[in-house]
Structures are given as C-alpha cells and as structure tokens.
Simulated assay, not measured.
Amino acid sequence: MKSKKLVYIPILLIYMVACSSNEPREGETADIPAESHEKALNALTMAEKDEGWELLFDGESTQGWHNYLEEGITGWKVEGGILYTEGGNGDIVTDKEFENFEFKLDWKIQDQGNSGVFYYVREAPKYLRIHHTGPEYQIIDDDNYPQKLMDNQKTGAISDLKAGSAIPSKVPGVWNHTRILAHDGHVEHWFNGDKVAEAEMDSSEWKELVANSKFAAFEYGKVLKGNIGLQDHGNPVAFRNIKIRVL
C-alpha cells in the first residue's frame, strides 16, 4: 500500500493543480465543451435549470453517492471542485435510481488509466460487482493501456459489448466530456460532442451481444432502471460537472 501511494500522490498533486483552474490548458481546447472552461464548475446554467437538469455532485462533498453495497463513501475525495480516487477505493453509485435520463460529466485519467461510467446498476448483495448488471461507458487510455484493447474496450464503447466509432481520444491528463442518453431501452454514448455508440437494450442484437460476452452468466442489462456508477479500476481518475436530466 505504501508503494502505491508513492506512485499516485505526486500525480494527483499535478491533477489538483490542473483541476483548480477553469482556464483551458494548452492542447485542451479542441473538443471539450465550452461550459467546462467558461462556466462555473459544478453549477447549472439558467438554460440547464429551465431544461430540468440537476447536479449529482455539488463540488464540495460526496453527498448523494456511496460505495457500492456499502453505506457512505471511503477513499474517494473532493478537492478543488473535483471528485477523485487515487485507485483501490472501490466503485461508487448514486443514492438514487434513474430510468429515462440524459447524463453528462467531465473526466480525466492519467497515462495507462482505466475507468468507466455505469448505468442501470442493480444494487443487491447477490450482485458482487456493478458490472454484473449495469452497462458501462468505457473510459480508458486507448493508446497506452498495458494490454492490447479490442475496439469494444476503447473509450466510448459499451464496454466489452459494442465498439464505438473510431474517434481519436484525447491524451491522458486533459479533461474529456461524456454524455449518455438512455430512454425506453435506447442508449447512446457521446464522447467530446460526437455520438460514438448506440444500442437497443430490448433488441435481439443486444441479447446476442450479451450472450457472446463475459457478461453472459450475469443478470446484465436486463432492467431499465437503476443506479449510476463511477468506476475505480485501480487507477487514479477525476470527475467534475456531473449532471442529469430525467426524461
């Protein structure tokens, strides 16, 4: 455990310096939405309020979240308006369940990082991991991950199920933007403003994809209501501007 901290803490110090400012860094302006730079972090614009958006992260606390299958949160931290984990602290899920929704957040990983956003997670002791039930929006270092990745394991994919479009990911160390639309079984994954994957969860195609995946033995993707989860895959990852709009 001590050696792990010696590796992660200096990196996270760099994280927090970069995260503490709303100003864009060099090379960060291409695809990141303007709101990440020009509007207050973890706040709703008047337009978002009118559209029914709500914050799932207040920028100051972990209120509204808990470790999967536990009460409260341990290990995850909030600093400078950023929700982050150094790795090894377990996945977290929302206290609330959601059915039809539009969801968005900003995220940042480091070199060789791996994380993800889950939805329709069914939280029960018989489901030991959030990926046993909830589909995942993959977040990963496509180019430098230490294992060879299949297309359905790259950023924006419905993880291990359906590949996303071949859109180059931004390098680790800069903010990226994720949007997930889920409505009556239709799901869309958006990455830095582009739709990269979609599926119908009640379709024969979906059932075939699940049957031929590592999720075949689980009750995976069988319900259209559940918690939203953020993954701690053992690597540092940071999140901000976590928002949802119930449809």
Rank of each mutant, 00 (worst) to 15 (best):
L69S: 03
E70S: 14
E71Q: 10
G72S: 11
G72F: 13
G72E: 06
I73L: 13
T74F: 14
W76F: 11
W76N: 11
V78K: 12
V78E: 13
G80N: 15
I82Y: 13
L83C: 11
L83M: 15
T85Q: 01
T85F: 03
E86Y: 15
G88R: 06
T94Q: 00
K96Q: 04
F98P: 05
E99C: 03
E99F: 01
E99K: 05
N100H: 02
N100K: 02
F101V: 02
K104Q: 13
D106Y: 03
D106P: 00
K108R: 13
D111Y: 14
N114D: 08
N114Q: 06
V117Q: 04
F118G: 10
F118M: 13
Y119P: 05
V121W: 14
R122H: 14
E123P: 13
E123R: 13
P125I: 10
K126A: 07
Y127F: 15
R129G: 02
I130V: 15
H131D: 15
H131S: 12
H132N: 12
T133R: 09
G134C: 14
Y137K: 06
Y137Q: 04
Q138F: 02
I139R: 10
I139W: 12
I140C: 07
D141C: 07
D141W: 10
D141M: 07
D142M: 08
D143V: 09
D143E: 11
N144I: 12
P146F: 14
Q147N: 12
L149M: 02
L149N: 03
M150I: 01
M150N: 07
D151F: 09
D151M: 08
N152P: 05
N152R: 08
Q153A: 07
T155E: 07
G156F: 06
G156Y: 04
A157N: 04
I158F: 15
I158L: 12
S159L: 08
S159Q: 03
S159T: 08
D160C: 05
D160N: 08
K162W: 07
A163Y: 01
A166W: 03
A166R: 09
A166N: 13
A166H: 10
